[in-house]
Amino acid sequence: MSTFMSKPIPALAGVGLKPQHFQSILEKKSHVNWFEIHAENYMSGGGIFHHYLQLIREQYPLSVHGVGLSLGSHDGVCERQLGDLKTLINRYEPGLVSEHLSWSKQGKHHLNDLLPMPYTQEAIDVFVNNISKTQEFLNRQILIENPSSYFELNYNEFSEQEFLVNIAKKAGCLILLDVNNVYVSSKNHSFDANNYIDNIPKELVGEIHLAGHSVQSMLSGEVRIDDHGSAVCDDVWNLYQHTLDKIGTRPTLIEWDTDVPSWDTLADQAAIAHRYLTNMSPLDIKENS
C-alpha cells in the first residue's frame, strides 16, 4: 500500500526522471516542480531505483507515463502489464497517468516502439475499448499522447487531431499534447501544426510534453526523428507559446531520454519552460534561483 497522498501536478515545468540525476535532484534547487517516470522502468520489486523514487516522491508530485501498454493493439491490452501498472500506481499515487496513441505489442511479443495506427473508425473503436478497460481497471482517468510518425496511411478516414479528439471524448480520457510530436509529424507529413493545436479542445488537454528531435536527410528532402536526444528547438518553443495562448497553462514536461545531459542542462530546459508558463523574463529566473 502507498504511504503517499496523491498530489496534483501543478501547471509548471517538470522533467523525465533519469537514474543519472537521482543524487543531484535531492541536492540541488531548481525550477523543476515535478517528475515523470516511464512506468516500465519501475516494474520491479525494489532496489536502488525505487529507493530514489521514494525519496523524490516524498518531495515532488509524480506522473507515471506508460510506454508499453499498447492501447492500439487489435487483441487488447496485456493483463499482466495492466496489473504491474496498477501496482506501481498504488505504490506512488501519481498525480497523472498517461499512455500513447500507438501500439507496440503483437500477440505475445513487445516491439518496444510507439508504432503508428491507421486513423479509421475501426481504430477508434479499438482505442476506445482498450482505454475504457484500462481506466476501469485502474479506477482512474488516463491521458493519451499524440505520437510522432514517419508514415501516414493512404486510407486514413480522419486527420490525427480529429482521431485523437474523437477517442478522448468517447473514452472519457484526457489528452497529453506532445508539442514536439505535433511539430515533427507536421514536418514529416506537411500539415499545419498551428491548425492541429487549434483543433484540440482546451478542456481535453491535461499535460504538455516538450522534447528535442533530430533531422535526417531522406531522398531529396528530410525527415524529423523524435529521438529525445537534444534540447527543445526554437520552432517547438514557438509552437509551445502558440499552444499556451490557445489552451492556457498546463503541467509541462521536458523529455530527454537519449544522450542524457547533465542535471544542470536538463534543469535549464525546465527553467525555459517555467519562463513560458509564468511569463517571466530569463533575468527573473536567475534572480529567483
Binding site: 516500465e40 508499453g68 501498454l69
Partner: peptide, 10 residues
C-alpha cells in the same frame, strides 16, 4: 526472442 513483457528489466 523478442521480449514477452514491455518491462525490459527482465
Amino acid at each position: 526472442e523478442p521480449p514477452q513483457h514491455a518491462a525490459l528489466l527482465h
